[in-house]
């Protein structure tokens, strides 16, 4: 290669490496702001600030959804299978909201370890399948009668 071109190539590569390092350091420093939500473990360990608007995300725990028959108020536990946090929300939930599905809730922690949400978004995973396949999977899981283990497995995709 021509020496001038070699020199230009070196300069360009230095430019690229420099920019990459700068961006990497910036995003690393801002990682807590770039994270969309805190997971329940972070909230349990006290990483999430109290009385500041934050988002909490995780799976809706099986059997934890309790609806108030008088109003739109609903309570459920969000879990990452290590710890869980109780979420309180008044309003209409997205269609995909269900036990065992991922959610991201926006709101604030009150002093008693409850998360008071004013917006709940559904998070879905990267798996797509026809309904028949899902039914077959559910049947197979039911035969094995190992529901907690099956729930744990499905969390790997989340």
């Amino acid at each position: 290669m021509h020496p001038i071109r070699k020199k230009r190539l070196t300069i360009v590569l230095f430019l690229l490496v420099g920019v990459s390092v700068a961006v990497a350091l910036t995003t690393y420093a801002l990682r807590q702001n770039i994270n969309l939500f805190y997971d329940p473990s972070q909230i349990a360990s006290g990483e999430a600030p109290v009385d500041v608007r934050i988002r909490a995300g995780g799976m809706v725990e099986e059997g934890s959804v309790q609806r108030d028959p008088e109003s739109l108020k609903v309570e459920f536990k969000v879990t990452d299978f290590t710890s869980s946090v109780l979420v309180e929300y008044t309003g209409i939930l997205p269609d995909l909201f269900a036990e065992g599905q991922g959610v991201v809730a926006m709101g604030r922690m009150d002093g008693n370890g409850r998360f008071v949400a004013d917006q709940v978004l559904a998070k879905h995973d990267e798996n797509y399948m026809p309904p028949e396949v899902n039914e077959a999977l559910d049947k197979a899981a039911g035969k094995r009668a190992a529901m907690p283990a099956a729930a744990g497995e499905s969390s790997a995709g989340y």
Binding site: N35, K123, D125, E126, Y128
Partner: peptide, 20 residues
Amino acid sequence: WWNTLHQPATFKLTEKPSMP
């Protein structure tokens, strides 16, 4: 790298795609 609302990629170079 971060917690996002967007789900991870369905197509991966090393694994089978997570759809039929």
